[in-house]
Design a protein around this nucleic acid. Structure first.
Lengths: 226, 226
DNA sequence: CGGGATCCCTTAGGATACTG
DNA sequence: CAGTATCCTAAGGGATCCCG
């Protein structure tokens, strides 16, 4: 048995062999938001050692999850279709992890990749209204921004801004409570959990579309102010 | 940033911090099939070093995913409700990994845990007929056995045998092709992919209920190293 | 300047033996 | 049975250097 293998004919074991290496899941998370250069990945994964990123990209290429592509004088890394098949699993994992998140820990940041992944996980847990009219939301948290387009009950989330959002939601402290449903949209505005720009009446639709309840199987944080 | 943390306020990163340690995912997989003693876990995870198992169990206990319970003169490890919330994510991961599985690699075994996890992942990808009449299947692969009960479109899978199965399916070489749908039930019997005991006509219902297609995004093994 | 490779050091993991 | 204890190797972290 190699050092990465588990010696079991089991889908979960196979997944763990590929995804269980440190940083791999986050690299794939970022690549599922679109093709990225080496330096984009470095910027989106603060603290990753350069040699580890290079090693992981080579491993993922060998596993058929990433392709490299020369573009101009830099290299574009792109997730393959096989990597895209991971989306449901990443959403499920992200929902599970986010269900236990209360406040950010000391020093934790929100990257573009984490914001996009979080919104995608939240979208798979809410229910978008099956309207014909489409909505464009922009969400900003920390330095990161993402846009979500809701159309016919289907949500797509991309990194970055959008030229004509219907509503821009700037996340403040307590934004997580809105996704959890422990505060309602009006309270969220009042408490500063969100700051809005655009059609503020859409916030309740937003909060129905994006939802990650707190797990009630997790204890309260020690420094709880609620 | 500690050595296990990623420094990101992100559900996926939090999940990776807990689940990304070697062996952890498989330990949880086994504990989601029911409470297990230390020696049960050792037996279900061939090759795991004893010190690693002990370390992981302590970590999982600290993370609120496992409880220890003295029962007689041995210790029972049990997954907590928070661990059970992982089930959808494990199913999704298992499906993703299993979609790329062709034949077992040299030396790979099927354990009870892997069989149960595989059937659960397969059940989340098939559609059980919404009948009132319930079905009891027993599936055997290698040394392992599991039973699946289908009732009103809901599938529950447990480890071990069942006293009165409607159909017992013994997996042979090519059983994976039946789950993938590349051979039909009649062919599966003929080719020896399955050996049946009981109501053989139920096999087509079985193969509709448990399904894991092959990923068409996977080519031939492209990675000879490792 | 982007995309790494190399070096050194620390820590986690693996194999095996041993004990309460 | 349920773990420790030990020893050793491999992988990760951090900084720097290199090359086109």
């Amino acid at each position: 048995m190699g050092k990465r293998e588990y010696g079991q004919f089991c889908g979960l074991a196979r997944a763990a062999e590929v995804l269980g290496q440190r940083w791999t899941l986050l690299i794939l998370r970022d690549l599922l938001t679109g093709p990225r250069r080496y330096s984009d990945l470095t910027a989106g994964l603060p603290g990753i050692p350069s040699n580890i990123l290079a090693t992981r990209l080579k491993e993922l290429e060998g596993d058929g999850l990433v392709t490299r592509e020369l573009r101009g004088r830099s290299v574009l890394y792109r997730g393959t279709p096989r990597a895209e098949e991971l989306a449901p699993a990443l959403d499920a994992l992200g929902r599970w992890g986010a269900a236990a998140m209360r406040e950010p820990r000391e020093g934790e940041v929100v990257t573009e990749g984490s914001l996009v992944a979080g919104l995608r996980a939240a979208a798979s847990g809410g229910k978008a209204p099956p309207e014909t009219r489409s909505r464009v939301y922009v969400v900003r948290a920390g330095e990161a921004a993402a846009c979500a387009i809701v159309r016919d009950g289907v949500v797509t989330v991309e990194a970055g801004e959008h030229p004509e959002p219907d509503l821009t939601v700037v996340a403040g402290p307590g934004f997580r409570d809105l996704l959890a449903g422990v505060i309602d949209p009006a309270m969220a505005v009042e408490s500063g959990a969100v700051t809005l720009d655009g059609d503020a009446a859409l916030l309740s639709e937003f909060s129905a579309t994006f939802r990650i309840p707190y797990s009630d199987a997790v204890g309260e944080p020690m420094n709880s102010s609620r």
